[in-house]
Design a protein around this nucleic acid. Structure first.
Lengths: 261, 261
DNA sequence: CAGGCATACTCGTATAGACGAGTGGGCAAG
DNA sequence: CTTGCCCACTCGTCTATACGAGTATGCCTG
């Protein structure tokens, strides 16, 4: 065990590239080439210290680069491991089509079942509250809204956190204000209430998570979030719902179909 | 200058939260509350060492957390600054509509001009090459493809890097294989060649950038990329182009309209 | 054989010090 | 006044050391 297998090369002392970057480069390349496979343990800090003849902080700096890239994850007491690329969940753009709604189950549950995963919905909160500036603008200057918060899990792993906002004059006193909105979800209820849906607008951003998002989604470091804001419009052009969704980016691929007209 | 303005509190020695995290928390909160504004300089490492009575590495650890979150950026010799949230570029889902194409200018140029920014296209490369497994699959098992690579800049800042892949039997010898594809871009040429476009499929992922992406997009640390793969289908259902796009996530909001049918 | 403990190995946190390198301002020489 | 140098301040990199805490293993004891 004195010398690491020839998986890793030597440092170039003449290079102006910082040592900890050189080490990170070599590890990254070894991972990319499959020398270290998904879930596999990297050499320990001590082994790399020995192999490269550098101090421990330097090795740790290298690891922290790779963590920032989402390539590896450290586990206290065990080692540093190559992060598995988790199976991703595809969100098709037609998931809110009326025909799906008519089957009664929510899009999330249906899709997860189809993929053979165990879906779960969590931390449901339904309450009236003051609209933020942004939500108010999107809903057309409403002051207070009904907020429906929930977290989605797949095989026990939280992957998505979503909040729906609805104007009180639409939602108050209806089943939409109940924890369980009934078959087909709130879109089905909206249509029953005479708010026939015309189209959705979706805005997509990606960014690094806030600490609270890291917590609720149990995100590894180096995993961004996809922030999706969907507004539902009825046939009169009125916005009837805004849904604010934060997704673990390593769990999702969004998919859209656009006409070429 | 002996004591920092009361912008920052004290450490809680009884807390089990690591000191460098407590410091990061305080700085983050101060930034969120606007105590430090966009572009403003944070206290220097030395000042924080003094204020909190910790070692320099501990302060640097705190900064590295905030950098990982994309909240701050260090500038060598100057200080650590609150990252400005750059103005974002919206990509509408109808940007490839035929009516836009008929005006002759590319979507990027038109949109940027409209937003009052100075657009630029860069590092153009057009060549035939072997298709990767993924591209080959998407294009329907083609072996070799025409690849068109280009980088887009906005007011001098690179924001997007894109590669279009086309089957050789469609593109070879046409103006599509020229550096300048002519007015309306390659979609206009495809239609002229009889490949009438029917629809597009877009796949969206978000992830941390690779080192080479950091370089070509000049990304600050803590900025994810949006990875968009668009496939264009003609009216016969044949995929005629795959466009692989990597965007700086802090420069873009994607926007889609979906029918509620 | 089963349970529990000791131990070695892992990463996490923190200190202290050293030198390098980029930036900007002030001062001195021309 | 202008030029150029020096210096103070900034972050970047690296070393060496120490202790804490989580994990796994194997041995020892009952």
């Amino acid at each position: 065990m004195t010398s690491l297998p020839s998986l890793l090369g030597d440092l170039d002392p003449t290079s102006d590239r910082a040592v900890f970057r050189q080490i990170a480069d070599q590890l990254r390349e070894a991972i990319d080439r499959g020398r270290f496979k998904e879930g596999e343990k990297l050499p320990s800090e001590a082994e790399l210290v020995e192999h490269y003849g550098v101090s421990r902080m330097t090795v740790r700096n290298s690891f922290s680069i790779l963590q920032g890239e989402g390539l590896v994850a450290a586990e206290h007491g065990k080692g540093v491991f190559v992060r598995p690329r988790p199976p991703v969940r595809r969100l098709a753009s037609d998931r809110f089509a009326r025909r799906h709604r008519e089957q009664g189950k929510s899009a999330f549950i249906v899709e997860a079942d189809a993929a053979g995963s165990h879906p779960q919905v969590d931390s449901l909160e339904v309450k009236e509250e003051k609209a933020t500036q942004d939500i108010s603008t999107r809903l057309g200057s409403v002051r207070r809204v009904l907020a429906r918060r929930r977290r989605y899990l797949l095989d026990g792993r939280p992957v998505e956190f979503a909040t729906s906002y609805l104007p009180l004059d639409i939602a108050r006193g209806t089943q939409i204000a109940e924890p369980n909105p009934g078959p087909g979800g709130i879109y089905a209820r909206l249509e029953e209430l005479g708010h026939h849906l015309d189209h959705f607008e979706e805005e997509i951003r990606a960014r690094m998570p806030s600490p609270s998002e890291v917590k609720t989604l149990r995100l590894a470091s180096g995993v961004p979030v996809i922030h999706l804001i969907r507004t539902a419009f009825d046939t009169e052009g009125r916005p009837v719902e805004v849904c604010d969704t934060v997704m673990a980016a390593d769990a999702y691929v969004l998919s859209y179909q656009l006409p070429a007209t």
